[in-house]
Protein backbone atom coordinates (compact mmCIF):
# COMPACT_ATOMS: atom_id res chain seq x y z
CA UNK A 1 0.00 0.00 0.00
CA UNK A 2 1.20 3.48 -0.85
CA UNK A 3 1.98 5.66 2.14
CA UNK A 4 0.51 9.06 1.22
CA UNK A 5 2.30 10.84 4.03
CA UNK A 6 5.76 10.33 2.54
CA UNK A 7 7.28 12.73 0.00
CA UNK A 8 6.67 12.14 -3.70
CA UNK A 9 9.36 11.42 -6.28
CA UNK A 10 9.90 15.10 -7.12
CA UNK A 11 10.89 15.90 -3.54
CA UNK A 12 13.25 12.99 -3.00
CA UNK A 13 17.04 13.32 -3.39
CA UNK A 14 18.51 11.93 -6.60
CA UNK A 15 19.87 8.41 -6.34
CA UNK A 16 18.47 7.79 -2.84
CA UNK A 17 21.39 9.55 -1.19
CA UNK A 18 21.17 10.52 2.45
CA UNK A 19 22.32 14.08 2.90
CA UNK A 20 22.17 14.26 6.70
CA UNK A 21 24.33 11.31 7.59
CA UNK A 22 24.41 10.13 11.14
CA UNK A 23 20.65 10.65 11.31
CA UNK A 24 20.04 7.16 12.73
CA UNK A 25 20.76 9.07 15.94
CA UNK A 26 17.11 10.09 15.76
CA UNK A 27 16.04 6.45 15.98
CA UNK A 28 15.10 5.14 19.42
CA UNK A 29 16.17 1.52 19.87
CA UNK A 30 15.41 1.32 23.58
CA UNK A 31 12.57 -1.09 22.84
CA UNK A 32 15.16 -3.79 22.07
CA UNK A 33 16.17 -3.98 25.71
CA UNK A 34 15.07 -6.61 28.20
CA UNK A 35 17.67 -5.53 30.76
CA UNK A 36 19.38 -2.20 31.08
CA UNK A 37 22.79 -1.23 32.38
CA UNK A 38 22.89 1.16 35.31
CA UNK A 39 26.26 2.71 36.13
CA UNK A 40 27.04 3.07 39.83
CA UNK A 41 29.12 6.21 39.75
CA UNK A 42 30.69 5.62 43.18
CA UNK A 43 32.10 2.28 42.12
CA UNK A 44 33.22 3.48 38.68
CA UNK A 45 37.00 3.83 38.34
CA UNK A 46 36.78 5.73 35.01
CA UNK A 47 38.64 2.91 33.27
CA UNK A 48 36.68 3.65 30.09
CA UNK A 49 36.23 0.02 29.05
CA UNK A 50 32.43 0.27 28.84
CA UNK A 51 32.83 3.23 26.48
CA UNK A 52 35.43 1.32 24.44
CA UNK A 53 33.47 -1.90 24.01
CA UNK A 54 29.96 -0.54 23.36
CA UNK A 55 28.90 -1.47 19.80
CA UNK A 56 26.22 1.21 19.77
CA UNK A 57 28.21 4.16 21.04
CA UNK A 58 25.67 4.28 23.83
CA UNK A 59 28.05 5.00 26.69
CA UNK A 60 28.67 8.71 26.92
CA UNK A 61 31.81 10.15 28.40
CA UNK A 62 30.76 13.31 30.17
CA UNK A 63 33.39 15.88 31.06
CA UNK A 64 32.38 17.26 34.44
CA UNK A 65 34.84 19.13 36.65
CA UNK A 66 32.80 18.32 39.72
CA UNK A 67 32.91 14.58 39.06
CA UNK A 68 35.53 12.15 40.27
CA UNK A 69 38.63 12.48 38.01
CA UNK A 70 36.86 15.17 36.04
CA UNK A 71 34.49 12.92 34.15
CA UNK A 72 31.76 10.37 34.44
CA UNK A 73 30.04 7.77 32.28
CA UNK A 74 26.37 7.77 31.38
CA UNK A 75 24.23 5.38 29.42
CA UNK A 76 22.46 6.80 26.36
CA UNK A 77 19.23 4.91 26.89
CA UNK A 78 17.88 5.92 23.48
CA UNK A 79 20.62 4.01 21.66
CA UNK A 80 21.46 1.28 24.16
CA UNK A 81 20.07 -2.06 22.94
CA UNK A 82 20.84 -3.85 26.18
CA UNK A 83 23.47 -6.26 24.86
CA UNK A 84 25.21 -6.38 28.24
CA UNK A 85 28.79 -6.08 27.02
CA UNK A 86 29.45 -3.14 29.36
CA UNK A 87 28.02 -5.11 32.28
CA UNK A 88 30.09 -8.18 31.38
CA UNK A 89 33.32 -6.27 30.80
CA UNK A 90 33.27 -3.83 33.73
CA UNK A 91 36.27 -4.93 35.82
CA UNK A 92 34.92 -3.53 39.10
CA UNK A 93 31.23 -4.48 38.87
CA UNK A 94 30.21 -0.84 38.69
CA UNK A 95 27.39 -1.62 36.27
CA UNK A 96 24.18 -3.21 37.45
CA UNK A 97 21.99 -5.24 35.12
CA UNK A 98 18.42 -4.19 35.80
CA UNK A 99 15.27 -5.65 34.22
CA UNK A 100 13.37 -3.19 32.05
CA UNK A 101 9.92 -2.34 33.34
CA UNK A 102 7.40 -1.22 30.76
Amino acid sequence: MMNKNLPGWRELPEGAVVRDPGNTETIDVSGWRVFKPVIIDDKCTRCRLCWIYCPDGAIIEVIDEKAKMGKRYEVDYVHCKGCGICYAECPVNAIEWVPEER
Binding site: L6, P7, W9, L12, G15, A16, V17, V18, R19, P21
Partner: peptide, 16 residues
Protein backbone atom coordinates in the same frame (compact mmCIF):
# COMPACT_ATOMS: atom_id res chain seq x y z
CA UNK B 1 29.53 13.82 3.76
CA UNK B 2 26.65 11.95 2.14
CA UNK B 3 25.69 8.30 1.95
CA UNK B 4 25.27 6.77 -1.52
CA UNK B 5 23.79 3.40 -2.36
CA UNK B 6 21.26 3.08 0.43
CA UNK B 7 18.55 0.45 0.84
CA UNK B 8 15.20 1.31 -0.81
CA UNK B 9 12.37 -0.27 1.13
CA UNK B 10 8.91 -0.74 -0.46
CA UNK B 11 7.91 2.74 0.75
CA UNK B 12 10.71 4.35 -1.29
CA UNK B 13 12.16 2.19 -4.10
CA UNK B 14 9.45 2.94 -6.67
CA UNK B 15 9.92 6.72 -6.43
CA UNK B 16 13.64 6.40 -7.17
Amino acid sequence: PISMGTVGEPDWYYEF
